[in-house]
Simulated assay, not measured.
Amino acid sequence: MLAVYPGSFDPPTVAHVAIARAALAHVEEVRLVLSEVALGKEDLPADRVGVEVRRAVLEDLAAEVPGLDVAVTATTLVAEISAEAGADAVVVGADKWAQILDPSWYGGSLTARDAALARLPKVLLAPRPPGTASTPSPAPPPTAHWLEVVTLDLDPAHGLVSSTRARAGEHALMAEVARRSGHWATGSPGPPDGPGRGR
């Protein structure tokens, strides 16, 4: 069984690694799917760490964690990413899950939202603990009663980790491979693409 785990991974964090490992308890393979343009993040700075560099860092991570694989996609919608890969499950964090369930991302249409939910495979949900910036992980609407959502077993401390904080200088939040690469070492975006320092 294959699960896709879409994201921008800028940088990959210790929480990304923990979530992928937790998902591997439910499937044989987790594919980290790097979005060239992540939905809702289209306006990020042009000088952020580029896709090819992030892909190389993710491939280093996959080499260290059995069951991980890496792909890059131009597709933005989670349902389309999972269909493109023929995935049996999709891994999402609480923030992305709230976005998937929010009709405003579908032009305010509940019908369009439910049609997108109908295309989702099993959802492996990484929750955020109460009291964090994210809202609690909402339940699927009653119209999607058939949708299977499994909450991953994670240390609540991972719910406080974010790539934004890691980029801002909290380097301990980065996955070890990201720290070793040197691309996020200064707390600001590194070179857009090309060979990395320390690689």
Rank of each mutant, 00 (worst) to 15 (best):
E52G: 08
V51M: 03
D114G: 11
A116F: 09
L117T: 07
V53L: 04
I100N: 04
P45F: 05
V70I: 04
D43H: 11
P103Q: 07
L61R: 08
I81Q: 04
V78P: 00
L44H: 00
V72H: 03
G93C: 10
E64A: 15
A116V: 13
G50N: 01
A62G: 14
A87Q: 08
E80N: 04
V57G: 05
G108D: 02
D60M: 14
D114N: 15
V51Q: 01
V78W: 02
V92T: 11
V91M: 05
E64M: 12
G50F: 01
D43L: 10
R48P: 00
W105S: 07
Q99T: 15
D114R: 12
I81G: 02
V57T: 08
D102S: 12
K96F: 04
G107K: 10
L117I: 07
K96E: 13
D114W: 11
D95I: 10
E52D: 13
G67H: 10
V49T: 14
A87N: 09
V78C: 05
A89I: 10
V78A: 13
L117R: 05
V72F: 02
S109V: 10
G50I: 02
R54Q: 02
D43K: 11
D88C: 07
A79L: 02
R113A: 01
W97K: 06
V53T: 12
V51T: 13
D102Q: 08
A83K: 08
T75S: 11
A74S: 06
E52R: 13
E59H: 12
I100A: 05
G107S: 09
D60P: 03
A85N: 10
L117Q: 06
Q99D: 15
G50S: 03
A56H: 09
A56N: 02
D47L: 01
P45N: 05
I100R: 04
T75I: 13
E59C: 13
V91I: 07
D60I: 06
A79I: 04
P103C: 07
V49I: 10
V57A: 07
A63P: 13
V90I: 12
G86C: 14
A89P: 09
A74Y: 00
A79M: 08
A79E: 14
D114Y: 11
E80W: 02
A56M: 01
D88Y: 05
L117Y: 06
T75N: 03
K96H: 12
L61I: 15
Y106L: 00
V53P: 02
A112S: 12
R54K: 05
D102Y: 05
L77I: 02
A112R: 15
A115L: 14
